[in-house]
Simulated assay, not measured.
Amino acid sequence: MLTAILTARSKVACGVANKQDQIVNIDMGDENDDLAVAEYVDDIYKFCKLIEVPSSLVNYMNSQPDINVKMRSILIDWLIDVHRIFELMPETLYLTIYIVDWYLSKKIVSRRELQLVGMSSMLLACKYEGSYCLWVDDLVCITDYAYPDTQILVMEKAILEKLEWYLTVPTPYVFLVRYIKASVAPDLEMENMVFFLAELGLMHYPTTILYYASMIAAAAVFATHYTLNKTPFWSETLKSR
């Protein structure tokens, strides 16, 4: 007992604290919030990390003869603008990008169809994630009538068939909200920078393809902490997530 006390005092004197003591229960206070599902949330995120491996994307650009990385980047930038104009939910944007990449990994697409794939993917993501769904006429109008409404609906069906109707995937947004909550004194400035960096990652093809969604989210949070000098840059609470 005396040895244990002396050891503990030595660690405190040297600035070495018990790691367990540094881990904050970020779900404390959510017990009465049914939407927070505090009793299940840890298991939910463990499951998300398990399924992000089989749901991860593959390097498909070499198999696409008519499109390239720059064209994809331009499309993603445009989709981000459309998402902002219609004030859609952030979950919708991240699922849209995932659907685009997943479809392109399964199907050869011409450059003429690339924007059509993006539009139909956003329509699908809106229906799945959003509280407000885009009208097909909205998409026809915003593209200056480049595609008729029937063509958008046909592409939407083709995407669903290729994906086998499987849209429940852990996108970076799923982990972003968790890591922001686990951060040191999160504020609006920090949140805005995290999402800004994450959206930059969406436009960067190698980042989207090479890294799992949880790692992209973690990198955005870590880079934000470092930029804003929020120490520690990666706390024990974040490590435990």
Rank of each mutant, 00 (worst) to 15 (best):
Met203Asp: 01
Pro206Phe: 12
Lys49Ile: 09
Tyr145Gln: 10
Tyr166Phe: 09
Cys14Asn: 06
Ala223Tyr: 14
Ile76Pro: 00
Asp81Gln: 04
Cys141His: 09
Ser73Asn: 04
Val177Asp: 05
Leu95Thr: 03
Tyr179His: 08
Asp138Ile: 00
Gln151Ser: 14
Ile152Glu: 05
Leu6Phe: 11
Gln151Trp: 07
Leu124Phe: 00
Val82Ile: 09
Asn229Cys: 10
Thr171Val: 10
Leu114Met: 10
Glu156Tyr: 02
Leu228Phe: 09
Asn32Tyr: 11
Val177Ser: 13
Val82Tyr: 05
Phe175Ala: 03
Thr237Asp: 08
Val177Asn: 12
Val82Arg: 02
Val169Arg: 00
Phe222Trp: 08
Tyr45His: 15
Met122Phe: 06
Val41Phe: 07
Leu88Asp: 00
Phe233Leu: 14
Gln151Glu: 15
Ser56Lys: 15
Val16Leu: 07
Glu156Asn: 08
Tyr166Asp: 01
Asp66Gln: 12
Ile159Thr: 06
Gly29Asn: 15
Ile44Val: 15
Asp33Phe: 14
Arg112Met: 09
Ile152Gln: 07
Val41Trp: 06
Asp34Leu: 07
Glu52His: 05
Leu200Phe: 15
Gln20His: 12
Ile85Gly: 00
Asp144Ser: 11
Asp66Glu: 08
Ala218Met: 14
Val184Asn: 14
Leu160Phe: 06
Gln115Glu: 08
Leu139Thr: 01
Ala36Gln: 10
Ser105Trp: 10
Thr224Tyr: 15
Lys46Ser: 10
His83Glu: 01
Asp187Tyr: 06
Glu191Pro: 01
Tyr132Leu: 03
Phe47His: 11
Thr208His: 05
Gly29Trp: 13
Leu79Ser: 04
Tyr132Gly: 00
Val177Leu: 13
Met215Asn: 14
Tyr211Pro: 10
Pro90Thr: 08
Ala38Phe: 15
Leu202Val: 07
Val100Arg: 02
Asn59Leu: 11
